[in-house]
Nucleic acid binder design. Sequence first.
DNA 1: ATGGCTTAGTTCCTAAGA
Length: 256
Amino acid sequence: MRIVSYNVNGIKARLPRLIEYLTEEQPDVVCLQELKASDETFPEADIRAAGYGAIWYGQKGFNGVAVLARGIDPIERQRGLGGEPEDEHSRYLEAEVDGVVIASIYLPNGNPQPGPKFDYKLRWIDRLRARAAELLAEERAVVLAGDYNVIPNDDDVFSVRAMQSDALMQPESRAGYRALLAQGWTDSLRTRFPKGGVWTFWDYQAGAWQRDAGFRIDHLLLSPVAADRFVDAGVDKGHRGREKASDHAPTWVRLR
DNA sequence: ATGGCTTAGTTCCTAAGA
């Protein structure tokens, strides 16, 4: 079972690339982020025609997450996180697919920092951690897949100096991510490439792709039961280099 | 040095992204 996390940066603009990805790679599950589309404008028919069932949690203009499954409809478990009822951002969608619990996560970017956006990011990490603890208590296979907007370690970025004041690698952001892992989650890509140097995002600006100036912010965390089934993890980097590509590459884990 | 692209909505500029 191959599970993908893919920040598409606008599902309308990316639809040809997404359909192409589904057709070529035939992944079992795809967690999408940054749909930038309302519920009403989600391209359900195109995705279904490509052989995938889908659930989605949209928002006009920005945010938006979805879970796609090949040949079946994901069963929705939860949309949004608890702890902040006034929060209307579409950033969390939890489903069950073939007995595995899978969440599509779009953690707030948090720039500029310091400031209210950064505070929101840190609160959101705490809220995610609360949900993650509940999921661990179920003692079943769970995959938390998404754009975490956290660069976990210095070897997860092309240049520490270039990014040092960015919300993505502030000590508070990293501490929140580490505290999540400390609950008992396994960072699948880190397990596969323990020395780092693997990127999932390359900025559109300043020739970042051409210079391979990227970093790792898309993560697939495994519960202990899921980690026992770990086979492999990777980044479909080739899809980042295509015409009209997202600035994120599809990132995946394979489970037995 | 907050620039340098890209997307979407409030469109021919602004906000947001990372």
